[in-house]
């Protein structure tokens, strides 16, 4: 295409609605939040801006001294480190089963596994709150058949986070499963045939053909799942409100509470930017690894 003014002009016209919206309603608030994170803007300042002070980095310093913040960070880490591998593993297994030539009724299974993905998280959290209920809940009832004593899933700090992880995996694995199915279908059959000719068994086929061929898909899935899991919020908001003992308090939930419950907006903005930093680091590491593999 030639470089002509009218070409630019049309491009800018096409871009302008979306870009205007993004700059005004996304980038501008991000900047405002950044400035806010260096102030003690809070409920006192809402009515009278002279009651806000620039405080430099003290919000950030306070946060690093606040055990609750480390707790939230640790919880989020737990959720991510257990939830993401579990979710990817289950997605991959489900995808391989769906891709198996032995299996019929594939549309049925695919649909079933995908249903939780499209349903409303709030509604799902409401349902699971009752399923996890210690005395009358369905889960404990089922577990009683295998001799497991009732667990107070959402009331016990040891189990509450695990309960949220199980629900989150149940809710989300179908999505990655679909992507894995697509990835699996893109692997040429000839590779498997060649492997079989070399006498590879099922496990070797998986190790030497499936896994390497899925590397790129897995990388994509890992990044998106990681970022999504880092921001988990609605599950604890609806089901536990961060409790018991703050064992399910996530970074975003803490940010939300500080910001929208107590209106300590400066403090809340600082949490948001730390979260941003973490996500950024994860993304960069992941990209580095991926690049390394490609070379």
């Amino acid at each position: 295409m030639k470089f002509k003014w009218q070409n630019y002009n049309a491009a800018y016209l096409f871009l302008s609605p979306a870009m205007t919206a993004i700059f005004i309603f996304f980038f501008l608030p991000v900047l405002a939040a950044l400035v806010m994170s260096f102030t003690d803007f809070d409920i006192y300042s809402l009515g009278d801006i002279s009651r806000a002070r620039f405080v430099g980095f003290s919000n950030y310093i306070d946060l690093f001294k606040n055990p609750l913040f480390w707790k939230a960070l640790g919880n989020t880490g737990y959720f991510v480190l257990v939830g993401v591998p579990l979710s990817i593993l289950i997605s991959m297994l489900a995808a391989m089963a769906l891709n198996s030539k032995m299996l019929r009724f594939k549309p049925f299974f695919r649909l079933t596994f995908f249903l939780p993905v499209v349903t409303t998280l709030v509604a799902v959290a409401v349902i699971w709150r009752y399923i996890y209920q210690a005395r009358f809940g369905l889960l404990n009832y089922l577990l009683s058949f295998v001799g497991i004593n009732p667990v107070d899933w959402l009331g016990n700090p040891r189990w509450a986070m695990l309960a949220l992880i199980i629900m989150a995996v149940w809710k989300g694995f179908g999505y990655n499963m679909i992507i894995f199915v697509a990835g699996l279908q893109n692997i040429p059959e000839t590779l498997y045939e060649a492997a079989r000719l070399d006498g590879a068994n099922g496990w070797q086929e998986f190790r030497n053909v499936t896994l390497p061929m899925l590397a790129q898909t897995t990388g994509f899935i890992t990044i998106t799942t990681l970022i999504g899991y880092c921001q988990f919020f609605a599950e604890p908001y609806v089901m536990t409100d961060g409790g018991p003992l703050n064992s399910t308090l996530s970074i975003v939930l803490m940010m939300y509470k500080e910001g929208f419950k107590f209106w300590r907006m400066g403090y809340s903005a600082a949490i948001a930017f730390i979260l941003f930093g973490i996500i950024l680091i994860i993304t960069l590491i992941q990209l580095r690894i991926q690049k390394h593999h490609e070379i």
């Binding site: 009752y130 210690a134 009358f136 009331g155 016990n156 018991p244």
Partner: peptide, 12 residues
Amino acid sequence: LGMNAISNLYQS
């Protein structure tokens, strides 16, 4: 301990 969400207080 824990049961801060007894599902039905009145039944209990």
